Simulated scan of single mutants.
Amino acid sequence: MALSADLARAGQRPRARYNRRMYRIVLIALVVVLAGLQYRLWIADGGWAEVHRLSEMKQELHEANEQRLARNNALQAEVDDLKSGESATEGRARSDMGMIRRDESFFLTIAPPGTVDGNHQAAR
């Protein structure tokens, strides 16, 4: 304390206990490190942008899988129905190929113009 009082009386500024130049270098280094970490967080591979993109891709794949699962379940039910007996096979042949039995008569009904379903078929 006595030294700083003597320097103040002599017109000199007392020396600081720390080196200001060194603190500036350390502060600049910390800012550079912080900027590098922010770059990795927001822009680089594995950052938030990629995480967001991957989560959206995951959601799209999940929705597509649900649609395919529903379609597969419907197809499996149809296969089980076709395996179970002749009535399912006969019904499929009648609806898809227009097949009729020998003792049946086939009637084709045509819908009036302007309706959505243009060809009604009935086997009897």
Rank of each mutant, 00 (worst) to 15 (best):
A2H: 11
L3D: 07
S4F: 10
D6N: 08
L7Q: 10
L7M: 13
R9I: 07
R9L: 06
A10T: 02
R13V: 14
P14L: 09
R15P: 15
Y18H: 05
Y18S: 10
N19I: 02
R20K: 05
R20M: 07
R21F: 05
M22R: 13
Y23Q: 08
R24E: 02
R24H: 06
I25K: 09
I28S: 12
I28K: 13
I28D: 10
I28L: 08
A29Q: 03
A29D: 04
V32R: 00
V32E: 11
L37D: 02
Q38C: 08
Y39I: 08
R40K: 11
L41G: 02
L41C: 05
L41A: 14
I43Q: 04
G47W: 05
E50K: 09
V51M: 12
V51Q: 14
L54M: 09
L54S: 04
L54P: 00
S55R: 15
E56C: 03
E56Y: 06
M57I: 06
H62A: 15
N65C: 02
E66T: 06
Q67F: 09
Q67K: 14
R71I: 10
A74R: 14
A74Y: 03
Q76L: 15
A77Y: 01
K83Q: 14
K83S: 12
G85W: 06
E90F: 12
E90T: 09
G91C: 00
G91P: 00
G91E: 01
S95K: 15
M97S: 05
G98N: 06
G98L: 02
M99I: 11
I100Q: 08
I100Y: 09
I100W: 03
R101S: 04
T109R: 12
I110L: 14
A111E: 02
A111I: 06
P112S: 07
T115G: 03
V116N: 08
V116I: 08
D117F: 08
N119G: 05
H120N: 14
